[in-house]
Amino acid sequence: MDGTPHAPAAKPRVSITYCTQCQWLLRAAWMAQELLSTFRDDLGEVALVPGTGGVFVIACEGDILWDRSRDGGFPDVKALKQRVRDRISPARDLGHLDRP
Results as ranks from 00 to 15, higher is better:
M1E: 07
M1W: 13
M1Q: 00
M1R: 07
D2P: 03
G3V: 08
G3F: 15
P5T: 14
H6T: 14
H6E: 10
H6F: 14
A7F: 14
A7V: 00
A7C: 01
P8K: 15
A9P: 04
A9Y: 00
A9I: 11
A10F: 07
K11H: 13
K11D: 10
P12Q: 11
R13E: 15
R13F: 14
S15W: 10
S15K: 11
T17D: 05
C22M: 09
C22T: 02
Q23A: 04
L25K: 13
L26I: 00
L26E: 13
R27I: 10
R27D: 09
R27Q: 12
A28G: 04
A29N: 13
A29P: 00
W30C: 09
W30L: 07
W30T: 15
M31W: 11
M31H: 10
A32P: 03
A32S: 08
A32K: 14
E34S: 06
E34T: 05
E34M: 10
E34K: 07
L35I: 09
L35V: 03
L35R: 02
L35H: 02
L36C: 01
S37D: 10
T38H: 03
T38M: 06
T38F: 02
T38Q: 11
F39A: 15
R40P: 00
D41V: 06
D41A: 04
D41M: 12
D42Q: 15
L43T: 13
L43E: 01
G44T: 09
G44S: 05
E45K: 08
V46E: 06
A47M: 11
A47R: 15
L48G: 01
L48F: 06
L48N: 08
L48T: 12
V49Y: 10
V49I: 03
P50N: 12
G51S: 13
T52F: 07
T52G: 04
G53A: 01
G53W: 01
G54V: 10
G54M: 01
V55R: 09
F56A: 07
F56G: 08
F56S: 11
V57L: 05
V57D: 09
I58D: 00
A59E: 11
A59F: 00
C60G: 06
D63L: 15
D63T: 12
L65Y: 12
L65Q: 05
W66E: 07
W66S: 09
D67I: 04
D67R: 09
D67P: 06
R68G: 04
S69L: 09
R70D: 14
G72T: 10
G72W: 07
G73P: 07
P75V: 06
D76E: 09
D76N: 15
D76W: 04
K78D: 12
A79S: 12
A79D: 13
L80Q: 05
K81T: 05
K81Q: 15
R83G: 01
R83D: 08
R85P: 05
D86W: 02
D86Y: 03
I88Q: 10
I88R: 02
S89Q: 13
P90S: 06
P90W: 03
P90E: 03
A91K: 12
A91T: 06
R92D: 04
R92W: 02
D93Q: 11
D93R: 07
L94Q: 00
L94W: 06
G95N: 14
G95S: 14
G95V: 01
H96K: 06
L97S: 02
L97D: 02
L97K: 00
D98T: 11
D98N: 12
P100H: 10
P100L: 12
P100D: 12
